[in-house]
Amino acid sequence: MMPKFAEWVSLPRISIVLLVVFGLAWVAMLVLTQMPGHSHSGPLPTMSTDELALSARLREHVRNLATAEHNVQKYAELEAAARYIEGALSAEGYSVSRQEYDCLAKKVRNLLITVPSRTQPGKRVMVVGAHYDSAIGSPGANDNATGVASILEQAKRLKDAGATAQSDIVFGLYTNEEEPYFGTNLMGSSVHARSLKEKGANVIAMFSLETMGYYSDVKGSQKYPGPLKAFYPEQGNFIGFVGNVRSLGLVRRVTGSFRKHAAFPAEGIAGPRAIPGVDWSDHAPFMDQG
Rank of each mutant, 00 (worst) to 15 (best):
W280L: 11
G213V: 08
A163R: 03
D288H: 14
F231H: 08
T175D: 14
E7N: 02
V96N: 07
A141G: 14
L112P: 01
F231S: 07
G162M: 13
P180E: 10
L111Q: 06
A230Y: 10
V278Q: 13
S281L: 04
Y84I: 13
E79A: 02
A135M: 10
V128L: 08
Y224D: 02
G236A: 13
V242E: 04
G243V: 07
P272Q: 04
Q166I: 06
A28E: 14
A161H: 08
Q235D: 12
M187R: 01
K4G: 14
K197H: 11
R124Q: 04
A91G: 03
L58V: 02
S134Q: 08
G277V: 10
T255S: 12
P121Y: 12
D102H: 03
Y232E: 06
P285V: 02
N185H: 11
H283A: 02
Y215L: 00
E210C: 04
K156L: 14
P45D: 03
R124K: 15
F207H: 03
M29N: 13
Y132K: 12
S221E: 02
I113P: 04
A270P: 08
H61Y: 10
E60K: 11
N237G: 03
L152D: 09
S134D: 07
R83G: 04
G213M: 00
S167L: 03
M206S: 01
I85C: 02
V127G: 05
P121D: 13
I269Y: 12
S95K: 03
E234S: 15
P225F: 13
K106A: 11
G249M: 05
G236H: 06
V148I: 15
V254D: 04
A161N: 13
A66C: 01
A56P: 00
A91D: 00
G87S: 03
L209F: 12
G277N: 12
Y214V: 01
V203F: 01
A205T: 00
V9C: 15
L58Y: 04
T114D: 14
I113K: 00
K156W: 13
K197V: 10
D279T: 14
N142F: 06
I239D: 11
V17L: 15
S48K: 08
H283T: 03
S216L: 06
C103F: 08
A274W: 10
I136W: 09
L228A: 07
R63G: 09
D279Q: 13
L196D: 05
W280K: 11
F258S: 01
R253T: 03
H61F: 07
M35F: 09
Y215V: 00
A53G: 07
L11I: 15
P36V: 09
G226T: 09
H61V: 03
S189G: 08
V108E: 06
L250I: 07
M206C: 00
Y224R: 04
P43L: 00
Y94A: 05
P116K: 07
L18G: 15
W8E: 10
L78I: 04
K229Y: 09
H61N: 09
V27D: 08
A76V: 12
N142V: 07
A88H: 03
A91V: 07
Q120C: 11
G243I: 01
S221Q: 01
L158F: 15
K219Y: 06
K260S: 00
V96K: 01
Y214H: 09
S97G: 01
A284P: 01
K199W: 05
R273H: 10
L54S: 06
Q166T: 05
N176K: 14
P45C: 08
Q73S: 12
A155W: 02
D217T: 14
L104G: 01
L78K: 05
